[in-house]
């Protein structure tokens, strides 16, 4: 890992700008959806669309202000005089930077796989596979430790929930075994 990639690169700055603009778009969509809420024929003084529209409008205002501020930072020439701040969030006590993007994609992918496979494969199998897979991705040298821990974790919680707490968990393809 080079030092450079530990900070915030140009993509990061773009994503931050995109997020600020996204909130503006989201507010508009939200207000549009709010206006489509049917008002029930009932004598309620404030209808079901009123609060969403108020909140949506305030959110639109706040998000425009944020996006404006952001755009002035990014492109001072286009949007009036720049405020002279840094183009990215200052790095002091930054504990949210990512140095290892492949790892993030791996986590998100395996997390999604865990959710998708939970009911078809059953609790014990998916949880053991997920834990073993992810931990071995990060510390391949300790695969045996990871395997044992994963199996113990899954079996322990399966037993605890189904036998002690009487909360059924999905059995999936192992159903004939249980």
């Amino acid at each position: 890992m080079s030092e450079e990639s530990s900070g915030r690169g140009p993509i990061d700055a773009k994503v931050e700008t995109a997020l600020a603009i996204f909130f503006v778009v989201f507010s508009i969509l939200f207000i549009w959806q709010s206006t489509k809420i049917p008002e029930p024929p009932r004598n309620i003084s404030v209808g079901s669309g009123t609060f969403p529209i108020i909140v949506g409008t305030i959110m639109l205002g706040v998000s425009i202000a944020l996006a404006w501020k952001r755009l002035r930072e990014v492109a001072p020439r286009l949007f009036g005089r720049g405020v002279g701040e840094m183009t990215v969030v200052p790095l002091d006590d930054d504990d949210t930077g990512i140095r290892d993007w492949p790892a993030v994609w791996a986590v998100l992918g395996s997390f999604l796989a865990l959710i998708v496979m939970l009911e078809p494969l059953g609790f014990v199998l998916t949880f053991a596979l997920f834990l073993f897979g992810l931990s071995s991705f990060f510390s391949p040298g300790h695969w045996l430790r990871n395997l044992v821990t994963s199996l113990c974790f899954s079996l322990f919680f399966y037993y605890l929930f189904t036998q002690v707490l009487l909360q059924p968990l999905p059995n999936g393809i192992l159903a004939p075994l249980f």
């Binding site: 009911e119 078809p120 059995n171 999936g172 393809i173 159903a175 004939p176």
Partner: peptide, 8 residues
């Protein structure tokens, strides 16, 4: 669920 349902 597929397998188990077929089985069941």
């Amino acid at each position: 669920m597929g397998m188990s349902r077929i089985l069941r």
